[in-house]
Amino acid sequence: MALNTPQITPTKKITVRAIGEELPRGDYQRCPQCDMLFSLPEINSHQSAYCPRCQAKIRDGRDWSLTRLAAMAFTMLLLMPFAWGEPLLHIWLLGIRIDANVMQGIWQMTKQGDAITGSMVFFCVIGAPLILVTSIAYLWFGNRLGMNLRPVLLMLERLKEWVMLDIYLVGIGVASIKVQDYAHIQAGVGLFSFVALVILTTVTLSHLNVEELWERFYPQRPATRRDEKLRVCLGCHFTGYPDQRGRCPRCHIPLRLRRRHSLQKCWAALLASIVLLLPANLLPISIIYLNGGRQEDTILSGIMSLASSNIAVAGIVFIASILVPFTKVIVMFTLLLSIHFKCQQGLRTRILLLRMVTWIGRWSMLDLFVISLTMSLINRDQILAFTMGPAAFYFGAAVILTILAVEWLDSRLLWDAHESGNARFDD
């Protein structure tokens, strides 16, 4: 018995066209964080690309023209004298008006014999932002004059995390709450300039795509075929072959399989920071003279006294001054041990922890910024005066060393310790 099946006739004509040209192939790229070699397709503007294995951002879609970056830099340069030299806060102490600005706080630190601690604050609040705007201006002028731009481009990517104007702005709020127990506070004209400078700096850093600047100024022929001998440069993120001198053909720094002496430098910085954190938390970090009496505060006791007036601000200072430094030390110690013992479990967790400490590390400088600003506000000789204690130097040095330890660690070593050939990683 035959089955009668109805015929289905399409209502619209289906047209099949042959592909007349070869589909576009992607360029081969190595991930600078996990060293995976993959094919990167062509990316349009405002599109980002991520590593298929570790999800690290390979290409950032946010990109401004150099002219727009230069305009932002010149605007920031105009704001800087007002943000640093004009009063941020006014207080009335014992019937006398006192003005506080950024430069005055750094000068008070240096004047009291601790120039190293003052230079830490100076670099993060004044030096690094000033280098940022002058570097962008150098790129703008240098591109037109045919100057060598490689050193500036190499420095810009590392400079971003040292620009800490946003953290200093939080420190202004913390210092205001600490001082309000002794005097009446009012915002100064410099505060508005400083807030504007923070906003412009944040926007500029978020749109400063150094890798795209490398592509514009020093374009290189990408690798179009897969080759395990391809290496990625950690300076400019170019994937290719080393030249005859073993250097990256684009930025001219040595092109090595792994960062040289990464573990040794990381261990040295980490152990030194552990040693410095002990006096930083045991010795007094601030000293207040009130009517001839002397009151010393460690980091913890200062947080407890701050909690009596504002528990939320005390929580912020606790996280930045105690929780973050010790968390960074514990995480980095764990990561280094996992590399030495070739741990194969929990790779995803370790990668996330490394990215976390990379982002939060700079916030530990908050305590030094609060001390710097408070020193310029309260300084009335023996009637009422505020000065920093010996722990300030140890704390600042420990924070900087932990930042350097994270920067010096080559994250690809975590993958080397893991089993080879993993296309995915999980716990």
Rank of each mutant, 00 (worst) to 15 (best):
M1S: 00
A2P: 15
L3M: 06
L3H: 07
T5G: 08
I8E: 06
I14Q: 09
I19Q: 09
E21F: 05
Y28D: 11
Q29D: 06
C34W: 00
D35L: 01
F38R: 04
S39H: 10
L40I: 07
I43V: 05
I43F: 06
S45D: 05
A56W: 07
K57V: 06
A71Y: 05
M76Q: 04
L77F: 05
L78I: 02
M80W: 07
R97V: 02
R97N: 15
R97P: 03
I98S: 03
I98L: 04
D99V: 05
N101E: 02
Q104G: 05
Q104H: 11
I106W: 01
Q108E: 06
M109K: 08
M109G: 06
G113C: 09
D114S: 06
D114Y: 09
G118R: 03
G127L: 01
A128V: 09
P129V: 06
L130Y: 07
L130C: 15
L132I: 03
S135P: 01
Y138P: 02
N143E: 15
L145R: 04
L145G: 02
M147L: 07
N148T: 05
L149S: 12
L149N: 08
L149T: 14
L154A: 03
L156N: 06
R158S: 15
L159K: 01
E161C: 13
W162P: 01
W162Q: 02
V163R: 02
L165R: 02
L165F: 05
D166H: 15
I167W: 03
G171R: 00
I185T: 04
V189I: 11
G190L: 01
G190A: 04
F192S: 08
F194L: 13
A196R: 00
I199K: 06
I199W: 15
L200C: 15
L200D: 12
V203A: 15
T204Y: 06
L205C: 13
E212Y: 15
W214N: 14
R216Y: 13
R216W: 11
R216F: 12
R225A: 14
E228V: 13
E228H: 13
V232Q: 14
L234M: 11
H237V: 11
F238R: 11
G240W: 12
P242I: 12
D243G: 12
C248L: 00
C248I: 00
C248V: 00
C251N: 00
R259C: 12
R259N: 13
R259L: 12
Q264N: 04
Q264R: 02
L270D: 10
L270I: 13
L271R: 00
V275T: 13
P279S: 15
N281V: 09
L283T: 13
L283C: 10
I285L: 02
I288E: 00
Y289L: 05
L290T: 03
L290W: 02
L290M: 09
G293L: 11
R294W: 03
Q295D: 03
Q295R: 08
L300Y: 15
L300N: 09
S301W: 07
S308R: 13
S309H: 10
V317K: 00
A320I: 15
L323Q: 06
F326N: 06
M332D: 03
F333A: 10
F333H: 09
T334H: 14
K342N: 10
L347E: 12
R350Y: 11
F369C: 05
V370Q: 00
S372Y: 02
T374L: 03
M375A: 05
L377Y: 08
L377H: 00
I378F: 01
N379M: 02
A385D: 04
T387W: 07
G389V: 00
T402E: 02
I403V: 14
L404S: 10
A405R: 00
V406M: 08
E407D: 11
E407T: 12
E407R: 07
R412G: 02
L414T: 12
S420A: 14
F425C: 11
